[in-house]
């Protein structure tokens, strides 16, 4: 699952990391929308060439290329199957374009997820009028994922020590083997949730209608610049797509 790394926050000191998450969200959405509007190789390559420098500015090229390599098997799979099964006149070109579009989509969202700390994300949501409880639930889920993982391993070890053979037998048996892990895990998690709730309650969770925040996100000039540029790009591309027929060189396709 290494290709998912591209959606995981990495601590870096870069221009992109310092942008306001809301500006980045807008930028990512615009990039994705633009990618969705074309299905020819040349325009998608152009979009792709705009995305790579952004990833580069986020100092995450290496991570990105690693995930793309992890994704390559899936991409090749998509190309082969689409080529074989498509009814388009030039099936190979078509599936190549599809793949490029998938990569462009993933990259444009990874710009967001790679550079936004979960805390910033929840703060951005709160400032976009999402209720604190929901935004906090999200950040808490991220907080407890590793803890639960650890617990699952501990339970597996305990069950193995009692003679449960977790990795033996046919598929059906293996699926049934999940039960002795899942049940204790759920019970332990419920207990943990109670104890967490107790601790949060003791620290005044949900006490005050006017909760304050230590770190408040502020739109700076550069954030406005990003939003303005993204908006201009969006308007321009939509205009081009609707009113201007694409020049033929842009619609170029491979002969197969």
């Amino acid at each position: 699952m290494s290709f998912l790394e591209v959606f995981q926050y990495t601590r870096q000191d870069s221009v992109i990391h310092k942008l306001d998450p809301r500006a980045k969200l807008f930028m990512s959405i615009v990039l994705a929308v633009v990618a969705l509007m074309f299905l020819a190789i040349i325009p998608l390559l152009i979009i792709f060439c705009c995305l790579v420098p952004i990833i580069g500015a986020a100092k995450s090229l290496r991570r990105w290329s690693r995930s793309m390599r992890g994704l390559s098997i899936l991409l090749i799979f998509i190309i082969i199957f689409n080529t074989l099964l498509s009814t388009q006149p030039n099936p190979f070109s078509h599936s190549l374009a599809l793949t490029l579009r998938l990569v462009a989509l993933m990259t444009s969202f990874s710009v967001f997820f790679l550079t936004v700390h979960p805390d910033e994300l929840s703060q951005a949501l709160i400032q976009m009028r999402v209720r604190f409880e929901f935004a906090f639930a999200m950040s808490m889920a991220m907080r407890y994922v590793p803890t639960l993982g650890q617990e699952a391993y501990a339970i597996m070890d305990a069950q193995k020590a009692r003679g449960v053979e977790l990795d033996k037998g046919n598929l059906l048996k293996r699926i049934r083997n999940i039960v002795p892990i899942i049940v204790p895990l759920i019970i332990v998690s419920i207990r943990r949730a109670l104890s967490i709730a107790e601790s949060m309650e003791s620290r005044g969770f949900g006490a005050n209608a006017t909760r304050t925040y230590m770190n408040v996100l502020k739109f700076r000039k550069r954030d406005w610049a990003v939003v303005t540029v993204s908006l201009l790009v969006l308007v321009f591309v939509v205009y081009v797509r609707i009113f201007v027929p694409l020049p033929t060189w842009m619609l170029w396709q491979l002969p197969i």
């Binding site: 700390h117 979960p118 805390d119 950040s139 808490m140 991220m142 907080r143 803890t147 943990r192 104890s195 967490i196 107790e198 601790s199 949060m200 620290r203 005044g204 969770f205 949900g206 006490a207 005050n208 006017t210 909760r211 304050t212 925040y213 230590m214 408040v216």
Partner: peptide, 28 residues
């Protein structure tokens, strides 16, 4: 409380310390 990891609900130390006062609406 007894279990430290059940008392830490945020993703870093600064936020954790700020969590209580934030809930009570203390000034930034």
């Amino acid at each position: 409380f007894q279990q430290p990891e059940n008392q830490l609900v945020t993703l870093n130390v600064e936020r954790e310390i700020a969590f209580g006062p934030e809930n009570l609406g203390v000034e930034r």
